[in-house]
Design a protein around this nucleic acid. Sequence first.
DNA 1: TCAAAAGTGTTGACATTACACCCATGT
DNA 2: ACATGGGTGTAATGTCAACACTTTTGA
Lengths: 243, 243
Amino acid sequence: MKIIPNLSVDCVVFGFDLTKLNILLTKRELRDPETDALLFTDYTLQGHHVLENEDLDNAANRVLKEKTGLDSIFLEQFHTFGDTDRIKNPKDMLWVKNIYPTVTNQVITVGYYSLVNSAKIHPDKKHEDTMWFPAENLPELGFDHAEIIDKALSCLRIKLSREPIGFELLPEKFTLSQLQILYEAVLGRKYDRRNFRKKITQLKYIIPLDEKQTGVAHKPAQVFIFSKDVYERTKKDKLGFPI
Amino acid sequence: MKIIPNLSVDCVVFGFDLTKLNILLTKRELRDPETDALLFTDYTLQGHHVLENEDLDNAANRVLKEKTGLDSIFLEQFHTFGDTDRIKNPKDMLWVKNIYPTVTNQVITVGYYSLVNSAKIHPDKKHEDTMWFPAENLPELGFDHAEIIDKALSCLRIKLSREPIGFELLPEKFTLSQLQILYEAVLGRKYDRRNFRKKITQLKYIIPLDEKQTGVAHKPAQVFIFSKDVYERTKKDKLGFPI
DNA sequence: TCAAAAGTGTTGACATTACACCCATGT
DNA sequence: ACATGGGTGTAATGTCAACACTTTTGA
């Protein structure tokens, strides 16, 4: 299958480990083709060129499946990056010349972000060089991927403050504290525990189970599930008042 | 300047005539190259292929400048459309084959919307075949432009309910009723006049002038201006509570 | 003098914030 | 027994929704 040389997708994979927000990155190395000397090393998002006769969304799904093994997970297009000087860093130009000699110097990339429960990816097994980094503490990034991640995060924040998508980052059964930590981690603010619980428990689509946490060295918490079905049935698309 | 055959931008130009929300469309006709018989006619967004060595955002600005004469107006990228079957209607395939024979059958388009005060465009003069249509009552559209407009409108709604961008659609000096009608037209809901005014007048960046409407057959309204400067200085990026 | 939109305040319901103590479990 | 996070209520404040009459102008 031939690639489309001037069109790629990049996926910002967000994960939550019940403590903090993480981003999945892949190690990139460039070695001199003759001497094999290590020229540089850094990290990049999971990306690939779109293939001929492939829908954009499918390209993003394919990349995700290849890099994480996960299928049919939450995936949302957030922005397209098309400045002609996107690849301006000398190391990136060198890398492109070595790895994709057929690629033009004007590549636009469509950014997607996806949300996964970190526990579902075991990067050590399949892809040694693909690993989680805390969103707050990322390593050196290739290309314009720092910019792409910034934009992804700000789009995720807006989305999360409008729609209940946080559950995509949690195990199916979760506690209210885990949910609160998730919101705090993504939105970068704190919530009062009582007020948070009050708010959440009045939502009909967050359903308490007759089940408690086990194996924790403190009072076990009640577990909840999210019902997308109930949400879809009861949501009312109200837009905020003008700012 | 050569075009990039598989990459285009489409601009959804929103205008407000102090009454309702409008969208700028261009008439498209295809005639049989031999008999000159009219094969079909419909309307399309303002779009064009991106040029080699042109930034995406610049391409959108160029298209807008060419089609409306306007420069440096509000322009926001909202979504990229990249399904392989985007051009599936027979009339569209026919049109592409006639007009852009070099173009591949897999073209992705980056959607932008822009906001203009309708009064600033006099389509009759420059472009007879480019005209305003009420957003609520659009004619038959080519390609997937109905879908693109839907998405643009829903993105505009979300943006408008988060940020004060409505002023881009208004004359520099406006009345509170005009602002209210604008919000009602875009968001598709009604506001109580007293509550709306209460809310707006407490915003420091909407500044009353010592000036009144003239030439109206009723009590003249006070006029206001929007200060982007004051807004930028006083805004606090608060994200909503989880839904 | 009439028509048309401008302008103006109060009240009740609801949502948001702030805040402190006891509980159940594993070690 | 202790450390850890779970679970709970109330009062003050702020925000939102509903509602009707008078004013100013041009025609």
